[in-house]
Design a protein around this nucleic acid. Structure first.
Lengths: 336, 336
DNA sequence: GTGAAAGCGCTAACAT
DNA sequence: ATGTTAGCGCTTTCAC
């Protein structure tokens, strides 16, 4: 790898001249002739600025980490895209990580931030995360922006309008004439689960529909949790005719279990989920969803982190634009 | 962030003494007393070695990049796990990337390797990648190990035993009495597609089953490609009764399209795919697959890259252990 | 308009 | 047993 000094030698100038030219220093008073010679030499040698050298000099890497529970979640794609686009525009690189690796005593965080590998992190905590783990993260005062959760004692969370999303999904079923509607929710300690449940209730109440405790399961966002939830819900004396599932993966489990149970969707049961992804097109029947602005969540997260890293004050932020949007496929139908 | 000099000051010793103690220099002749004082000071200040400082000193980061076409592919999880485990054992960190970002003139590669952000890369090229793009990568002579493909002029590819996998899947269908078996394959330029096709033929021949050109589609590994392939295959005068799908995502598309076409699986059509993932449990019917050792592929890839980085000679390598394994669910049945 | 030099945090060869 | 020093590649102040 060529260094500045290699380029300098080849161009017959000093290192500092090269540095000034190649980093486009605004007040680089260099003759056009020298500048051209330097640029040519840099090209000839395929010069690239050394990352470590710069990082050491600036105490800054221009790299941020995006840490999510499961990178293979279909809707993580959109988030990643949003993060990368926004990061690119602000001249940052993105390093991807899995939040399971966050677990043991914040080892990952100290490796990433503590050792100066990244300047800050975007973190979506796993739903199973204990309050203690999160408190650890928050307390250290690292430049972290949480995605999809807001924590007391920490400013700078960016969340989706989960409430509006769940409300929209529920209203769709209500509009279809369903009266017995249940929610297949996430774990009780999950921030998004809480908000989606609120949205569910917010849509049920004005329709005069009761939400008995038995109409809500809070088992989690995995397919297995969806299966389990469906069995529990069907075991009731008056099973629901419509299901609002708080997460697309859980909904996939619901659909799959319904098949096993020889239950017809949407004839016997309507199902709609919060979050959209390509996987929804390949379930049977194709799953109706509420598309949430994951891409914009990613962009907003980066923007927030950027502000934080540049000494600006940051506030918690709800991404409301674009609004959650119904994507109707074939898993819901009018009652009767 | 505390530096060595901070620790030194607090412990009342020189910087180099601290460095020796904290990096466990084998011949660090230091009195037990000083050593203890240093360690204590380091703990007090939560000292962490600065990444850039070390990288600059060693011209080495102990970071490798894993670049795959689509991180959200369900079977990428296993690969990532294998890579991370093996990397951890060898004291490397893993940086994740998407191979779409490889595209424009190798910009990503020069950023990662050229700027010294990582020491080497594990690359799974996208099936759509042009030969030219790959030649670019190969030619630069970077420390790269290719996953799932082998390229002329480049040593150090690690691949699965695709042939054995496809053969196993095909033999399963043959054993079930199917005679008209088709392969839903990947793109012609895809290395794995080629090998899986070979495996398919290798199982058909000894059973005395012909493989007419119409029995093989080569549309790609996406769900949409699977759908398209199924329609093409069914349009034939004597449509197949069994399908070997070269990739699980394409198989999901096949299943989904079969539903739309009111075709019963496995009653009317048996389907089996190469690659296993959790998503196979949630299709309808649950998809039978051949599980490939993705985890070991990841480990082998890191091992190969490690050797390369440490001046050892590296050879191309086929991961054969564990062997591909049938995972029977409900998408195949005996002809009858 | 250009160059010399200091220093970011770290390690290792070389003093003492 | 411990300290001093040079230097990895880079930017930037200061001198010329």
């Amino acid at each position: 790898m060529a260094t500045l000094s290699d380029v300098a030698r080849r161009a017959g100038v000093s290192i500092s001249a090269v540095s000034r030219v190649l980093s486009n220093a605004p007040e680089a008073r260099v003759s056009a002739e020298t500048r051209a010679r330097i640029k040519q030499a840099a090209v000839d040698l395929a010069y690239r600025p050394n990352f470590a050298g710069r990082a050491l000099k600036f105490s800054r890497t221009n790299v941020i980490a995006l840490v999510v529970p499961d990178l293979t979640n279909a809707f993580a794609t959109e988030l990643m895209l949003g993060v990368e686009d926004e990061a690119l525009e602000r001249d940052y690189m993105v390093l991807l990580g899995r939040s399971e690796d966050l677990k043991p005593g914040g080892e990952m965080v100290s490796r990433l931030i503590g050792e100066g590998r990244v300047d800050g992190m975007l973190v979506q905590v796993a739903d199973q995360s204990s309050a203690a783990e999160i408190a650890d993260l928050v307390q250290a005062g690292y430049p972290i922006v949480f995605l999809n959760s807001i924590h007391t004692g920490h400013r700078g969370g960016v969340v989706l309008d989960d409430e509006a999303g769940a409300r929209l999904a529920t209203e769709h079923l209500v509009g279809l004439g369903h009266r017995r509607i249940a929610m297949v929710g996430g774990l009780p300690q999950s921030y998004t689960a809480e908000r989606r449940l609120t949205g569910f209730r917010a849509a049920m109440a004005p329709a005069g529909l009761p939400v008995p405790p038995t109409a809500v399961t809070r088992l989690g966002y995995q397919p297995g949790n969806g299966r389990e939830a469906l069995r529990a819900l069907l075991a009731q004396p008056e099973p629901p005719t419509g299901l609002v599932v708080a997460n697309i993966n859980a909904a996939i489990g619901v659909l799959s279990e319904a098949r096993s149970l020889r239950l017809q969707v949407p004839e016997d049961l309507s199902v709609i989920s919060v979050h959209d992804a390509w996987t929804a097109e390949n379930t049977w029947p194709p799953l109706s969803t509420v598309k949430m602005p994951m891409y914009q969540l990613g962009r907003a997260g980066v923007a927030g982190l950027y502000d934080r890293l540049h000494g600006q004050e940051v506030r918690d932020h709800v991404v409301t634009d674009p609004a959650p949007q119904l994507v109707l496929r074939e898993s819901t139908r009018a009652i009767g």
